[in-house]
Amino acid sequence: MRALLVILHRYVGLAIAGFLVIAGLTGSIVAFQSELDAWLNPSLFHIERTGQSLSPSRLAKAIEHADPAVEIFTLVFPSAPGESAQAFVGSRGGDTALAYDQLFVDPGTGAILGRRMNGVFGLDRLRLIPFLYRLHSSLTMPGNWGAWLMGGIALAWMFDCFAGFALTLPRGRPFWKKWKLAWTIKRGAGPYRLNLDLHRACGLWLLAILFLLALSGVSLNLNSELFRPVLSALLPTSPRIWDQPAPPTAPPMTLDWNDALAKAKGEAARRHWDHPVAMIYAARAQGFYGIRFGRPHQAGFGASTIFVSAADGHILSVEEAGAGKAGDMIAGLMLPVHSGQVAGLPGRILICVTGLVVAMLSITGVYIWWRKRASRSSRRRANRRPAAIARSGALDAAQ
């Protein structure tokens, strides 16, 4: 069994090492993406004046008046005075391609502060952080291919965590005394031993976090394909509004942004929610609005969402953070766990550091494999040399 685990850990680790280096390094940055993006682009994220913000409908009209070719899908509201609002847009009717899909807006006047295409390649300050986020989540591959690939890597990483843990368990006695060595890093050791200790000890100390990162990665990238079906088979889980197929033709959006917000706020007040509105998005193909309540980087289960019919304004569904059935609560925890927001700022710092450790574990794993392979090759060459000499001597004697 141990020999099989060695082979699995070795070759699964080698196969996913490069991807984990990318995911780990970019994940360390993504843990603070909003702060870093605002620091790099202050003219987009900050405004000098503060005052009354426009209503969502007036803000949407101001944006669409500035560029009639756009259709707004999401409005993101400022979380504090002096911050800009954001809008994510698409081409009205889908006929013409836009050079941007994200706008930054003065929430008090509707003036456009800037535009960009979110997630496209770019190392300049405008595009860097969104590009790194997309690289982290999907390797910038088109469609769902990148998400599926990273989800498969996360799944392999989950099982590799178990294999790596099992290989640290000593085979002889005294068990605890021998196993204690696996948790430590020997001082003054040579390069090979240092890499081995770093790989083994850091993997053990952060095993729970590494496993949760892998599990939540599966959830975020293979949610409907794998995570949700397995979760629903194991635990009671409520159906989601997104599980319903979209109608053959997009329903008319009778309600405007203000009406949808008013309906959602009424439902939130009935449930005694005290969180501010973070964003509104229009699911035009399905015919409803989603209104998300919560503060940025809020510790705990994350944001809650109320879904309002765009046809008649009735409440279609409510996804309350930390509520619902057991499966709902676990599913709702996946994003806060993956981002570290479940524990607030300390959790995000931990995820940032863990991302660097993930990259280190991958690099040290490859180094350990390379050293062992070089050592085995050297031994084989050494074993073949006496045999070759013997054969040469036998030939000489025969001649």
Rank of each mutant, 00 (worst) to 15 (best):
L139K: 04
I351C: 02
A208D: 05
V89S: 05
E267S: 10
F227M: 06
A99I: 00
A208V: 08
G340I: 01
Q298K: 07
W179L: 07
L335K: 12
A299S: 13
T96W: 05
A15G: 12
D95T: 09
V120W: 04
H136R: 08
S138G: 11
R200Q: 14
P170H: 14
T109E: 02
I72K: 11
T109H: 08
D106H: 12
L210G: 15
A299K: 09
G114N: 13
A382R: 15
W39M: 12
P245R: 15
V277K: 09
G164K: 14
L5T: 06
A182P: 10
G122N: 05
T140Y: 00
S375Q: 13
Y281T: 13
V366I: 13
I209L: 14
D396E: 14
A311C: 00
A343M: 14
V277E: 07
N258P: 01
W370V: 09
A23H: 12
L231D: 11
L103C: 03
S339C: 08
K180M: 07
S91C: 03
D95H: 10
M329H: 03
R173M: 04
Q399C: 07
H136N: 02
G313Y: 06
E35S: 12
P130R: 05
F121L: 04
A154F: 02
A397D: 15
L361N: 09
F131N: 04
L226H: 11
L198H: 13
A331G: 09
K263I: 00
D256G: 05
V342I: 15
P107I: 04
R379L: 15
I306W: 03
L361D: 09
Q86L: 14
G365C: 05
A214Q: 00
S138F: 04
L123M: 06
S34P: 00
L139F: 06
F159I: 02
I306C: 02
E64G: 00
N41P: 13
L213W: 04
H314N: 05
I315W: 01
L215M: 01
I185S: 11
P130Q: 01
N118H: 07
L44K: 15
L14H: 07
F45P: 02
P336D: 09
S43M: 08
L231Q: 14
K186D: 03
L345I: 05
K178E: 14
L235F: 15
L222R: 11
R385N: 08
M150H: 10
N144G: 01
